[in-house]
């Protein structure tokens, strides 16, 4: 399973390198969303910097959703039939795609966080908080992608798409966004209360979603 997940991972990264969909379409979109949030909240610096962590994470949530959709659209080119015919191990496929999506969204997320610190004037506090935010951010993005790719594979196997995916994904993503926002508050200049606990929550979420996904993806594609 690990072997095939590595093959799938390399393939997904290569496709992104060639097509640049996330880099040239999703990333600019994220920037536009941040700016629109700015418009919606008005030019009051205090309001903006207070809202910054939440806005950042809603944007990253949106990016994850788009990245997951894109990742599943790639697989749709060969379809569930192709996956079955070539005997691609579903668990490996799940892990590989989740890892590829996680790293891609994480990189976009880093750009979003740094640019939001600038445009919302929230600035950064000490280096430790920033490290905590980066670590928490990775865990959060991992959790989002783990859940998203799982539901994506479900829709791939059953020929339902697009609209069902966000309906299933968003409630599962809610606690992740909540915890991730809390972890980002200190780094973006807020209070440091219970940051370690929130990091723990994110780690648990990531591990829980990823392991459920790995176990369950096997049986998702086995039947038709």
């Amino acid at each position: 399973m690990l072997k095939s997940s590595w093959i799938v991972f390399k393939k997904d990264v290569k496709i992104e390198m060639k097509s640049r969909v996330l880099a040239f379409q999703v990333l600019p979109l994220a920037g536009a969303v941040l700016i629109i949030f700015g418009f919606a909240l008005g030019p009051d610096n205090q309001v903006l910097s207070r809202a910054a962590p939440g806005l950042v994470w809603i944007t990253i949530l949106l990016v994850s959703l788009l990245a997951v959709t894109r990742s599943i659209a790639i697989e749709d080119e060969i379809g569930a039939d192709g996956i079955r015919l070539f005997g691609i191990d579903p668990g490996g496929l799940y892990l590989g795609k989740t890892m590829a999506a996680t790293i891609q969204v994480f990189l976009i997320g880093v750009v979003i966080i740094f640019s939001s610190a600038a445009i919302f004037n929230s600035g950064f506090s000490d280096i430790l908080s920033i490290l905590a935010m980066v670590l928490g951010g990775f865990l959060a993005v991992g959790a989002l992608c783990s859940a998203g790719i799982l539901f994506g594979m479900m829709s791939l196997a059953s020929n339902v798409r697009e609209t069902l995916l966000p309906l299933l994904f968003l409630p599962v993503a809610a606690p992740v966004v909540l915890a991730a926002t809390k972890v980002s508050v200190p780094a973006l200049g807020g209070s440091k209360a219970s940051i370690l606990e929130w990091l723990g929550v994110l780690a648990v979420l990531f591990i829980a979603y990823l392991s459920v996904g790995t176990v369950v993806s096997e049986s998702l594609l086995e039947e038709n």
């Binding site: 095939s4 093959i7 393939k11 290569k14 496709i15 060639k18 097509s19 790639i74 080119e77 060969i78 379809g79 039939d81 192709g82 015919l85 070539f86 005997g87 691609i88």
Partner: peptide, 21 residues
């Protein structure tokens, strides 16, 4: 439906399926 990833080169497509095999 041809099992092909359109964004990959032909070689990379074949390579992917063969390495899975």
């Amino acid at each position: 439906k041809l099992p092909i990833y359109y964004d990959l080169s032909g070689q990379d497509n074949i390579k992917y399926f063969l390495s899975i095999r």
